[in-house]
Simulated assay, not measured.
Amino acid sequence: MFHALDIIGTLAFAISGALTAINKKLDLFGVLTIAFVTAVGGGTLRDVLTGSTPVGWMLNLDSVYIILLGFCLSALFWRRLEKLRVSLFLFDTIGLGVFTMIGIEKGLIAGLHPVICVALGTMTACFGGVIRDILCNEIPVLFRKETFYATVCIFGGIVFFALRRTGLNIDIIYAASSALIIIFRLLAVKFKWYLPVLKV
Rank of each mutant, 00 (worst) to 15 (best):
G43K: 01
E105C: 11
T38M: 13
V48F: 02
E105F: 09
L73T: 13
L59V: 13
V48Q: 02
D133L: 13
G56A: 15
I67D: 00
I104F: 00
R46M: 02
I131V: 05
C126A: 15
T93E: 10
T122M: 13
I139R: 15
R46E: 08
G107E: 01
A119C: 15
F71T: 09
G42W: 10
D47M: 04
A35N: 11
W78E: 12
G42F: 12
Y65C: 10
C117P: 14
I34R: 06
I109P: 00
F77N: 07
F127G: 02
E138C: 01
A35E: 06
F91P: 03
G43V: 10
I34V: 12
T122E: 05
L73A: 05
Y65F: 13
C136V: 09
A119W: 12
T100Q: 07
W57N: 02
G128A: 11
I139T: 15
M58A: 11
F127M: 13
G121L: 10
G70N: 12
C72P: 02
L76I: 13
I34Y: 05
C72R: 01
L73E: 05
G103Q: 04
V48C: 01
V31F: 04
V98K: 15
L142N: 09
I116E: 04
F143A: 11
G97Y: 07
E138H: 13
V48L: 00
F36S: 01
K83P: 06
L84A: 11
A125K: 10
Y65M: 11
N137I: 08
R80P: 03
T38S: 08
L120V: 01
I94K: 13
G107R: 10
C72Q: 03
L68W: 01
L135I: 04
N137F: 10
I139A: 11
V86R: 14
G121S: 09
G107I: 00
V40T: 05
D47R: 02
M58T: 14
V118T: 09
I104H: 01
K83H: 15
T33F: 15
L49S: 08
V31P: 02
G42Y: 08
I34F: 06
L96P: 08
L45Q: 01
V86F: 14
L69K: 06
I139M: 15
L69S: 13
A39R: 05
F127Y: 07
S52L: 00
T50Q: 03
G42V: 06
T53P: 01
T122L: 14
H113Q: 14
G97A: 09
I102H: 07
V48G: 02
I104P: 08
I94Y: 10
A35S: 13
L69E: 08
C72L: 12
A110L: 00
I66W: 08
K83Y: 12
G30P: 09
F71K: 09
E138F: 12
L76D: 06
N137P: 04
I116H: 12
L45M: 14
F91I: 04
G128Y: 12
T44H: 00
L45A: 06
R46A: 03
L112Q: 14
S63G: 10
I131C: 04
G51S: 08
L45F: 08
G128R: 14
L76T: 14
A75Q: 03
N60S: 07
F143Y: 09
